[in-house]
Amino acid sequence: MAENGKRPSALMMWLGLADNAFTRQKTVKFGDASAVNSGRFYSIAVVVVLFTLWTLSSIFGWVEPFFWPPLDGTVERAAKLINEGFRNVALWEHVWISVYRVISGVLLGALVGIPLGFAMGLSSIARGLFDPIVEFMRPIPPLALIPLIILWFGIDETAKIFLLFLASLFIMTIAARSGVSSVKISKVHAAYSLGASRIQILRHVILPNTLPEIFTGIRTAMGVCWGTVVAAELVAADRGVGSMIMIAKNFLQTDTVVIGILIIGAIGYAIEMVMRWLERLLVPWKGKG
């Protein structure tokens, strides 16, 4: 047992209220990032406090339901949305159509962006040709393209997926290109000396070397596209979470708006968690080169 203090319990460590023996012995903690623990106790506390405030304000009617809905009403509305849907469309269908748009957009973006990024990383001509386009398009927020896309495609499904395709295309291109550029020349040389052909170098050295960065690209693209899809649905759509909260606003259904926002946040969080899990599973060698 440590001389300095008692052995901390696993629960206290998990909550971040106790440090492990090594951190406890440190005298310099301010500025040492590794001495900062999860602080999970405070995370739990803040969620509990917010929830309690909402409950109390519902009970005592502190806030006009027009600005923020009471808890019981919201729960009721949520049950109704789940059972009856919103405007003749089931709730899960609103959520699914948004998720479906994001996945299609990201996949299409990856399908075009990854080969484009490879070409730009491997050939001077391709880099020269596409660099001005990619660098010019990159800083433009996808939402700024909505008017143009509506002019081109109208407001049907193609328009939304094309917008998300553009949003992920440049992210994926840049990720793939930077992955290709970061391949260590000694690995490529080693592979040539082991008798690999160009196509084998591409398939067995450059591609796996690039996967971690491609994965980071997909993660970023998923996040950006999720934000974009909701915003795009606010502008022009009759289905999807974004359209749901926009229409609800027109009917002054604050509770539906809040439920929509909670769903958007939760799905965005879930996407990030799934991607992190996939990353650990699929590219465990990330950062170990």
């Binding site: 260590k184 040389h189 080693a190 067995h204 050295v205």
Partner: peptide, 17 residues
């Protein structure tokens, strides 16, 4: 480069995947 001449580098030339 050719398979008749093998190379051993200082480090970082293994395929970590």
């Amino acid at each position: 480069p050719d398979a008749e001449r093998g190379m051993v580098f200082q480090q970082g030339a293994l395929f970590e995947w």
